[in-house]
Amino acid sequence: MTALREYVLNGEAIKGETIIDAHTHTGNLRLYIPDNGPDGLLRSMDRLGISVSLLATMLAITVDPVAGNQEACDAQLAHPARIRGYAVVSPHMSGTEIRAELERRLLQEGFAGIKLHPSQHGYPLTGPGYAPAFEFASEHGNVILAHGWTGGSLCDPQAFLRMAKRYPRVTLLLGHSGGAIEGQEESMDCARQADNLHLDFTCSIRGYGMLERMVDRLGAERIVFGTDSTLIDPAGTLCCVLAAKIPDDDKRKILGGNALRLFGKRLQAWE
């Protein structure tokens, strides 16, 4: 058993490693979820040894992007070493509003990246309403994490491939690796066709042997650890990575090294 694998059974917080959870939330997504505020997020992180979380609030994703982004800003200010925000924008905002919000959050407040949620917004990732966000990210070299799920036209892996090719300067994270098992297969195919398209490992569906397959087909460099905490208990996804039959060095890339590389100076304040 490798050193990292032992953490699955021993139940201890990981020590001496940089673990970056690139997909977290606070607040409600209509469901009942216990302890889902910033304190709960930190409690989960401490329990497992997660160093830093990149946060898009549920308020921002659903009904009020600006107020929700302010919640993320407040959490980032309160816990600058542990929480960094995603600026969420909606295609239902005007282009001027989107640019102003992104300038404020990313250029002034030090947010880590941009989060888009086509399913919540009921709007296709490829639609013109998201173009101002992609243009901003292209100008500034930002990371965009977008919700992705197979089987629909709004944000299936093919939509990500189109946007990755349309905006080659944008680092695009394909949320949930496309979702269900079929989506994860499709996501691997798409990511192989665009170097700036990476897979967000966040998913509540963890097929046996799937991470090993992803690493084999795509390389560990293209997979970024995320959990959906505080919607989801991050322990399961973390242990899925820790348990995988891949070298510990690959696990370290997935768990933190890739995020440090992709987000670059946006995480330096944390480092």
Partner: peptide, 11 residues
């Protein structure tokens, strides 16, 4: 993947 539920219990 069994590690998911094992890890949920142990942690």
């Amino acid at each position: 993947d069994p590690a998911v539920t094992v890890g949920m219990v142990t942690h």
